[in-house]
Design a protein around this nucleic acid. Sequence first.
DNA 1: GAATGAAACATGTATATACATGCCATGTCA
DNA 2: TGACATGGCATGTATATACATGTTTCATTC
Lengths: 245, 245
Amino acid sequence: MSALSDSASPLYEKVKDFVLANIGSGKWAQNARLPSENDLVNSLGVSRMTVHRALRELTSEGHLRRVQGVGTFVAPPKAQSTLIEVSNIINEIRDRGGKHRAGVILLERVEHPAPAIVRAFEFDRVKPVDHSLVVHFENDSPVQLEERYVNPALVPHYLDQDFTSIATLEYLQRCTPLTEVEHLISAVPAGAEQARLLHMPERDSCLVLHRKTWTGATVATVNTFTHVGSRYSLGSRYRPTHKPA
Amino acid sequence: MSALSDSASPLYEKVKDFVLANIGSGKWAQNARLPSENDLVNSLGVSRMTVHRALRELTSEGHLRRVQGVGTFVAPPKAQSTLIEVSNIINEIRDRGGKHRAGVILLERVEHPAPAIVRAFEFDRVKPVDHSLVVHFENDSPVQLEERYVNPALVPHYLDQDFTSIATLEYLQRCTPLTEVEHLISAVPAGAEQARLLHMPERDSCLVLHRKTWTGATVATVNTFTHVGSRYSLGSRYRPTHKPA
DNA sequence: GAATGAAACATGTATATACATGCCATGTCA
DNA sequence: TGACATGGCATGTATATACATGTTTCATTC
């Protein structure tokens, strides 16, 4: 009676399952202290390295908290936040298959804009700023309006880029060593300009994804406006790493 | 000259940095095959277990792809998606400090609803379904409308719960062993009912967060409607795990 | 030429051992 | 009583070794 399951999975997985089962059943409550590695070695009949690997992985997955010299504890539940994936709508369209066709048009491009938004986005110190407005199409109907503020000093060859042919987020992701990314998701009623460009009624809802990237200084801010007439939405499934008992 | 940095970090970290540096510099391109573990053992002068741990962690972090019996390869860039955190608005309000006050009112509660949405949400086989409608307040003004469809058979004591006092997502997260979660973020114009409950103009934009959880059978579906008059938004910063070169 | 089998090689896991590092309680000495 | 040293115990890392498992290659055999 080793207290470990007899499935075909590796030993360290069985140890992880054993620990998670004890957490899930409430036997080891939040912030409770787990038996030491050596205790588990004795009670489970596996080597310390195996126990250690199991506990280390559970720690990196957020289930445990370990303090050298002190012990191992049950971590508080996974915060009040959940990870989700926000897909790049462009690729979503592209991946949808044959009859759909993605396209873009470049509406305008100014290298020295100075609107209020530029100051608000903390670009006031790093001019010039490249400002461009792009509309993405699927089958001749507009689906997304993209507003980009890019610091060309920090993005190599940005100005030479044919940036109607590649998803902006992809390009920035590939070319810049990202140190930090900020996303904000919000919803706004479409303004007159946006409504015209997206062929949608004014004041209809727009889903907005703000994306701002740094590498120390600000690299770029991209706002994408999507008309969500129940046609598109962001999100996907999230499968927790630990399988419950 | 071991090709490894001479910092104070552990050996396996140095190996990881070595691999990431080779990927970042382009020396090992996307999908390229890495030297075998034994090659790295010989060229770096560390044991195979150490190399193995470094490569295994880089694999679980998404930088590498390994196939037993074949080799180790540079994984394609982190997909077209980005991880963000979606905070629980309720906690956001609560954490905002003293002068703000969160509250809820329960509008209605039916145990045997059978609207079309219930069928659409795949609840048709597991009746009864608890349906409730809750409005969250901050300082007497409504900020969020929550629509819940919960399968009481799968959530212990759900019907006994004073569920105006606790954030629903939190409760479900604590009580059910989640196997899968699906999120959808969308934006809709407020309908008449929603506009009235949220004290907002009809057809103004609502940010909607759909959340659906399973443990095999469907446990719950929660839709939260938030009036985003530039007052609230979802999102937060994401700090990539690998430091760029 | 096609099928079979074996060797070579890759990653995956498990163990024993050793030492490093950090925290804490205990006891000793001033 | 306070400061300090020490030993015990916890986790953290590194290594050598062994075997398991999956893939490819190549030679043998039919």
